[in-house]
Design a protein around this nucleic acid. Sequence first.
DNA 1: TCCGCTCTTGACCATTTGATCAAGAATTAT
DNA 2: ATAATTCTTGATCAAATGGTCAAGAGCGGA
Lengths: 214, 214
Amino acid sequence: MKMRAFMSQAKPAQARKTRIQAQNEGLILDAALEVFSAYGYRGSTVDQIAAKCGLSKPNLLYYFRRKEDIYTAVLERTLTGWLEPLRALDPDGDPVAELTGYITAKMELSRDNPEASRLFANEILHGAPMIGKFLKGPLKDLVDAKAAIVRAWIAQGRLASVDPYHLIFAIWATTQHYADFEVQVRAILGDKSDPTVVGVKTLITLIMDGLRPR
Amino acid sequence: MKMRAFMSQAKPAQARKTRIQAQNEGLILDAALEVFSAYGYRGSTVDQIAAKCGLSKPNLLYYFRRKEDIYTAVLERTLTGWLEPLRALDPDGDPVAELTGYITAKMELSRDNPEASRLFANEILHGAPMIGKFLKGPLKDLVDAKAAIVRAWIAQGRLASVDPYHLIFAIWATTQHYADFEVQVRAILGDKSDPTVVGVKTLITLIMDGLRPR
DNA sequence: TCCGCTCTTGACCATTTGATCAAGAATTAT
DNA sequence: ATAATTCTTGATCAAATGGTCAAGAGCGGA
C-alpha cells in the first residue's frame, strides 16, 4: 500500500461529472464505507463492495481503477466532516461550556457515524499508511491551535491545569470508544438502550468535575 | 472465520510437550503477535509469520494446522494478563487510590504491550468474531463485579456519582488510546519523549478532579 | 547402537482476488 | 436520426495465499 501525493484526484482528465457518474460514485463510496469499516482494507474485497452497491466488479473498476483508489476516496470524503467539532471550539466562549459542547458533539458524531469512526480507527491502528501526512499536517495544525486556546484558558485560571494535548486525546478516546468498541460495550451492558446517552453524561461529569467528592 | 467452542486446545492428542515443541510454539506466538497486531488477521500471511520466526511455512503449519489456530492461540495467551489490573481493584482500599492505581497499571500495560492492545483493538473493531463469547462471559462477569464495588463506594459518598460501567469504559479508552492510536499521538506530539508519562498524569488529574477550577 | 517418533522441507494444489480487455448496450449531443 | 461518447459486462489472467503431502533429517529412549 503506497503513500502517494496525499489524496489523489480520482479522475484527472474529464473534470465534468455526468449524472450517472455522480450517482454511481456515490453508491460505491457508501458501500465501500460499510465494507471497509467492517473488515478493514485487506479484509475487504472489491467483489463485496460491488455486490453491496449492485454493480458488477468491472463496472466498479471503471469508476475507481484500483481498490486503493476506492479506499482513499472514502477516507477523503469522510475526513472532511470529522474535524468540524474541534474546529468549532471557540476561544471567546466559556471554557467549561465549550468543552462540554465539544464532548457532546464528538459523542453524537460517533453515535451517528460509527462506520466512519471505525474506518479511521482501523487506518490509524495499522500505522496510518494512507493518512499519515494528514495526521502530521492539517490535523496537527488544528490541534496545535486548539491546544493553545485551552492553554490560554488555563493561564486565565478558568480551567484546572492539565496538558491540553492529552485532554484532547482523552476526549477523542472516550467518545470514539462507543463506536470503535461497540461490540464490547454492548457485550457488557447488554444490547438494551443506547449507551451513548448515559455515556456522554458520565463523561461530562468525569472530565468537568472528576471523581473525588467535593 | 467461524466461532468454535471458545478457545481451542492446539494439540488434543499428546499432552506432553517436547523441548523443541515448546520453544517453537513460543517463537511462533511471539512472531504472530507482532504480525497480527500490525496488519490484522486478514492482512497477515502465514508466510510473514514464518519468516519472522525463521521457520518454513510447512513447519509452522506443523505446529498450528490453520492460520486461525495461530490467531486464537495468540489471543488466548495475551488475554490472560490483560484483566489483571482490573481484577486487582480492592473493595477495601481507598477508592481514589484504587482507581488511580488502576489507571496507572492500565497505562503501563498499554505502554509495555502495545502489540497486545492493538491485537484486541483490531479484534473488537471487527466485531470480535473470535472472542465474542469471552466478552459476554468472563469479561462481563468481572466488570459487573467491579462495577458493584464502585457503586458501593459511591453509595458511601466516597466517590462522585457516576455510572461505574462508563467510568471503566473511560479508563479503558483513554489508556489504550496511547497504544492503539500511537501513530496519531506521535504525529501530533512529535516523536520526542514517551507520551504516557504526561498522559497518565493528565488522566489522573482529569478523572479524579476534573477541569472545573475549584 | 538402533528403532521409533518428532521435526523439517521442497514441491505442489486449489481458491481467492485484484485487475484487464474487447465487445456490446445505453446515453447524449448535434 | 445518427454519430460520438459513456457505460456495462462476461471472460479471462496473474499473483498471492492457505493448506497438503511424501520423503528425508534429526532426536531420544531402550
